[in-house]
Amino acid sequence: MGVRTMLKISKVIIAIIVIGFSSYLLITKNFELMPYLMLFLAILMLVTGLIEYQRNRKGFWGYLSILVSLFILFVSIRGFFFN
């Protein structure tokens, strides 16, 4: 199993986790788990950026996904410590 295949599988698993968290938060309207959702969203964006980077598309979208994931990770960490 190659690295690209592992990234694609992990992307699907993390996307399911993100959808599950967001559905739970929308249904219950209990937003205490929002930092966890943001953390998994940051990981999903990072994996997406790495997949784009490995496709030899070292252009705008790969780097943008990685930068967005770092920003979301920063917001998630602030949510953990200041909430």
Rank of each mutant, 00 (worst) to 15 (best):
M1Y: 08
M1G: 08
V3W: 08
V3F: 13
R4D: 07
R4L: 12
L7A: 04
K8F: 14
I9C: 12
I9Y: 08
I9T: 09
S10K: 05
K11G: 11
K11Y: 14
V12S: 09
V12G: 06
V12M: 14
I13C: 06
I14L: 07
I14V: 15
I16L: 12
V18F: 04
V18W: 03
V18S: 03
I19C: 13
I19K: 03
I19V: 14
I19M: 11
F21D: 05
F21L: 13
F21V: 04
S22T: 13
L25W: 07
I27W: 14
T28A: 15
T28W: 10
T28L: 14
K29F: 10
K29Q: 13
K29W: 11
L33D: 12
L33G: 12
P35V: 10
L37G: 10
L37Y: 13
M38L: 15
M38P: 10
L39G: 09
L39K: 05
F40S: 13
L41A: 15
L41H: 05
L41C: 14
A42K: 10
A42N: 10
I43A: 11
I43W: 05
M45A: 08
L46D: 15
T48R: 05
L50R: 07
E52F: 05
Y53H: 15
R55F: 03
R55C: 04
R55W: 03
N56L: 04
R57M: 03
F60K: 00
F60I: 00
W61K: 02
G62R: 01
Y63F: 00
L64R: 01
S65L: 00
S65R: 03
I66N: 00
L67S: 08
V68R: 01
V68M: 02
V68Q: 01
V68W: 01
L70H: 00
L70N: 00
F71D: 00
I72M: 02
I72F: 03
L73V: 05
F74S: 07
F74R: 02
V75P: 02
S76I: 04
I77Y: 04
I77E: 03
R78A: 06
R78G: 07
R78C: 06
G79I: 06
G79D: 05
F80N: 02
F80K: 02
F81R: 06
F81A: 07
F81T: 05
N83Y: 11
N83P: 11
N83D: 07
